[in-house]
Each structure stands twice: as C-alpha cells, then as structure tokens.
Design a protein around this nucleic acid. Sequence first.
DNA 1: AGTGCGACCCGAACGC
DNA 2: TGCGTTCGGGTCGCAC
Length: 273
Amino acid sequence: MPELPEVETVKNALKKRVLNLKIKDINIIYKNIIEFPDVETFKKNIINQVILDISRKGKWLIFELNDYCLLSHLRMEGKYNIKKINDEYDKHEHVEIIFDNNVSLRYKDTRKFGRMYLIKKEEIYNTKPLNELGLEPWDENLNVKFLKQKYKNKKLPIKTVILDQSIITGIGNIYADEILFLSNINPLKQTSKLTNKEMQKIIDNTKITLQKAIELGGTTIRSYTSEEGVHGRFQNELLVHNKENELCPVCNNKIIKIKVGGRGTYYCPKCQK
DNA sequence: AGTGCGACCCGAACGC
DNA sequence: TGCGTTCGGGTCGCAC
C-alpha cells in the first residue's frame, strides 16, 4: 500500500523516465479514476503539455506541466508502468498517457481506488485535494507546540489521529503501527491525553521510520511494486505490523491485533501500555 | 465541529 | 476440491 515512502520511490523512478516528455494523447479507460475536471476537459487540457518536473506532497504525486499540475493518488494499489505505444493493455490498466516519442505511461490499479486531478498550476495549494494537507514529516514547523494545538481537543484514539492527513501528511496504516510501537504508546490512548514527551517521540519516530523506509524503497505487502518493478525492502524491517501472535522484538511478549477506527492495528500490550 | 460509518473496489484468504 | 463469504486499505460523503 503506497504510503509516503512508496510514493517517493515511484516519483524518483518516474523522474528518470518521463521528464521533459510531451503528452501527445491520453486514453482514459476507467473514467472514475479522473476526479476533476470532467473527462473531456481533462483530456483537452493535458494534451500538448510537457512534464517539467515530478514532486510529492504527502501521498500525492505531482506532475508539473506547463500550465497545470497532474495530481495522482495511488491509494491502495496504484502503479505506473512504462510501455510502448500499441502494447496490449493489461487487465487493470485504467489510464494511458502517450508521449510524442511513442512511450506509453500506464496507470494500473487493481482496485480502481486511485484518483487523478488536473489543476491549474497556481491553484494547486489553494484547492482540493492539496489544500487541506498537513505538514510533511520533515517540516520545521512540526514540533510539540504544533501537535499540542492539534491534539488538545481530540477524543479519538491516537492511532486514528496519526492517520489524519490534515495534521501530519504521509503516514498510512503500516507506518502508524510502527511509529506507535517505537514510541511506546498504546494505539487506543486518547489523543488529548498524550504528554509532551510522547508527542516528541511521535515526531522523532515518524521522521526516523519514514526516512528509513524511503532509503529501502518502501514496503512491499501483497502486490505492491514500484514503477521500476523494484520490491521495497522495508517489509523486512517491520516490527509489529502484520505480526499477530509473533513475538515482540523488544520484550518477547505476543503481538496482538485489534481494530481501531475500523483499521487493523498491531501492537505489543507490554511495551505499549 | 467532531465523530462514526458505509461506499468505493476486487483479489486473497478464509470457512465450510 | 470447490464454492461462498469476509477482509483490507485511503479517502470521501453523509448522518448524527
């Protein structure tokens, strides 16, 4: 499942392959992938644009074009693959971008959950979907004071709030469990009751965990691969996520699985009181 | 405003 | 073995 580190990996892979290419045509096979604007306008506006740069904000991929930005969220299983024009479509390829050198960039998404927006460049940070995103993990404004302000009235469990993209952006279900384990915080703990020390640990461990995951090319669970087909190696580093009934690497107690806000949540009851 | 939950999807895993 | 059922994951929209 692409979280921040996976998107970073995909971004870096794509930059090597499609930078400075001009979009000659686009085929939208499954229309629901296009969230905004309507499909016809989307097509009309993206054709003849050149990919000037590719960046990332939270879990969003940002293709910077001449006049617009193409925003792409991979959600659960979105992937990009480079093919040649006229190569047959795979079953789950939903969008095809054709460049004027006849390279074909395919967006493939088994679950059809991913979404794309085409937004005027100057508006991307003032409008959906990027306008409500919180801080990147390495933003200098991410400190205890900031979290205190955001957390003070929250009655929800911290696990749920860590997944709230409007506070810190980029953390998904896998890394949330890892960050709370490293911070010795129970995922059910009411957010407003966190101490300063615990908030500092969340900040530190978020940076550490995501940085390490980026260095290892992300995590591979189920079918996730990056654009280059490289399997992320962070999966080998996971301490608690997906490890129900295995032993805690710190205290040897059994890791348990519960549901928090509808999400599968793994933790060590002894290390995370 | 904050919170909870179904909907969106479909392959894998599970239960019988 | 084969069938039907459940689950999961991020985000949005709706109900309360």
